[in-house]
Amino acid sequence: MTIDITGLPHERITFCPSPLAELGNALHALSEPAHHPRQHAWTTATSAALKPELADRLHEADFMWRSTRSDFLIPAQPRETLAEELDDIDRFDDEKFVGSALEISCSTAHYGRGLPSPLVDEQSRRRALDLAAARGPRQAAFVERVLADPAGMRAWIRRLLEDCDEAFFGDTWRRVRFQLASDARHKSELLRRKGLAEALASASPALSLEEDAHGSRIVVDKLVQGRTSAQGTAVTLIPTVFGWPHLTAVYGPGWQPVIHYPAAAHEVGGTEPVDLVRARVEALAHPMRMNMCRSLARGSYSTSELADAYAITAPEVSRHLAVLKKAGLLTTQRRGRYVLHQLDFPVVARLGSDFLESVLR
């Protein structure tokens, strides 16, 4: 997906931590602990310590952060405190708040298309209620209350987030905020001294700057298609500890672009480009190439040896090897007049985590 920043001064591109954004990621980690193996100790201890009443309320509202974070949880103008950011949410009109709260999981307003919220569009309303009902009677009742009394439910959600802050997030934020502030300062200094391309690459290998005769764009390498423009507004980049491996972007109509990137160092996977991961999976999906990999995993083979082993012609072997090599799955070495091929074990061993990281990104 792309964010058009043509003509946008670099001082309108900011790196800044956000307590609300980190709380949203922490709630997501509690809902989907399998996405966040690094946080296993924290999610286990925090879940065990939750009072049943708070756990029930979190379950009731978890569609706002389970699959991805609702837009209002990723503020375009981060503040020093959670209370200040919640005050900013209170200034949203009901349509913007409800649309952002329900859009991802409970609305027909497909993200990025700018369709009306369920408060003003009957089709979106019915779809939101149907999707909530599919998740169980508790969420169905919750969405009905949101649509019937937006102001009352906005206050209910604020109390829920404040109770989370008191129960567990306040201590967590005090622990991680200095790391996030340090990360943001480092990226801001890179932006000032070396330019936006360096700052983006430092934030995530999945972020890059694309410049040509048509203008400048921030490119976010994700398995999603979308585009927006920051012209006349700004771009905010928010570091997160709890967010890895997700790289979240707010790009819907009417919202200032925001990128929520993992500040933690990657220990699993190589943050490979999505196209490269796709090419590797497709290369291995072919039955003949899968069979050839069995031999290539056990030793080095020449083209003629593979042709003899699998009873196919040398040109056919060469075509299959070319696909595997283009995907970066082979190593080659010359021995006399022969070129020997072998499976690249570290790359293949990492493919599962690369795939998982790319689909969760």
Rank of each mutant, 00 (worst) to 15 (best):
H246L: 13
G252D: 15
D171S: 08
L200E: 00
A199L: 04
L191Y: 04
L180G: 07
R177N: 03
D171H: 12
A167H: 09
V241Q: 10
R227Y: 10
S204Q: 05
L196P: 01
K194A: 14
Y251K: 03
T248F: 09
H186A: 14
R193Q: 11
T228D: 02
R174M: 07
S202G: 00
S188R: 11
F178V: 12
R227H: 14
A249P: 05
I218A: 04
E198H: 04
W244T: 00
A230D: 09
L196N: 02
A199P: 01
E210H: 14
L180P: 07
H214K: 14
E210P: 00
G215R: 03
A201K: 10
H246V: 09
G226R: 00
V219T: 04
Q179I: 14
G195N: 01
G226K: 08
R175Q: 15
Y251L: 11
A181P: 00
P239V: 02
L200C: 03
S216R: 13
K187T: 01
A181Q: 14
A167E: 12
K222S: 06
A249H: 04
V220Y: 11
G195A: 07
L247I: 05
T240C: 09
S216N: 00
Q179W: 11
P239E: 04
A197P: 03
L190M: 12
R217F: 10
R192Y: 02
V219A: 05
L223M: 13
F168L: 06
I238K: 06
A203K: 06
